[in-house]
Amino acid sequence: MSNILIIAEHNGSELSNSTAKCVSCAIETGGSVHILVLAADATVIAEQAAALNGVDEVISINHPNYSHALAATLAPEIAAIGADYSHVYGPSSTYGRDLMPRVAALLGVNQVADIMAVKGPRSFQRPVYAGNAIIDVSVAEENTVVATIRLASWAAVSGGNNATVSSRETSAEMPTHSRFIGLKTEGGDLPDLQSAKRVISGGRGLGSEENFKIIYTLASKLGAGVGASRAAVDAGYVPNDMQVGQTGKIISPDLYMAFGISGAIQHITGIKDAGTIVAINKDAEAPIFEVADIGLVGDLFSVIPEIEAAL
């Protein structure tokens, strides 16, 4: 039977929702499920991990060098602990995509990237060519399965569990060649794009940074996260970290509303797992309407106030 180690993602004080999604994938894989928390102070995060349903055990390690998630610092410890497991899973966020290949290389194996479905204990489906093809990938019996979990494909498990937490000391040597300097976050008080149930996005059709405000206003009325197309980011209307698409964030909210977004393939790649896609565009021929569940041809500057009035 498989024994699966999940590498927790967190911001230093709180466990990320992405870890609960990895647990879903681990349950589907089958076997015992352990979570490894590496943090400057792992106590609270480990408790949050232990509360996730389906988790059998949480291992926590405190070390001042773990205060920022540097792959080069974390990977040796994860590889040392992971060597005793059949599977090592991490989220396919920038955190996991940075870290897990380094772990895989230390364990001498290739990594399975972006698991979207489990076909067997060592056999998975993942997207290639920007999601234009889905491949079946399997890992040989003698190799550790090191993988990242495609977050848009998995639901978070619920809480209420009370798994055992055990603390350990670090065992692997840590390099000193990589140092954290700072993190600049943007976006303010709006819900996080990747975990928001509703997301409102704007595209080039907004026309300016100033005009983009109506998207924020509607989003705050709906309690929604705010995203943007690459065109809107490139035009400077909004910062980079709001970009939704193949080269930005891949999201799966229950409701996605696209205003003034034409629907380039690279944008569609980022939203095709959304529950319901709504498109508002004045061009009836815009490709976004091909994937929209509900479409409305109209000028967003008059439609948005009308939506707000009808709420």
Binding site: S178, R179, I181, L183, T185
Partner: peptide, 16 residues
Amino acid sequence: RVTREVDAGLETIEID
């Protein structure tokens, strides 16, 4: 000194 595009924003790290 490298600025990285991470989910939370822009992270800067220094590497030898």
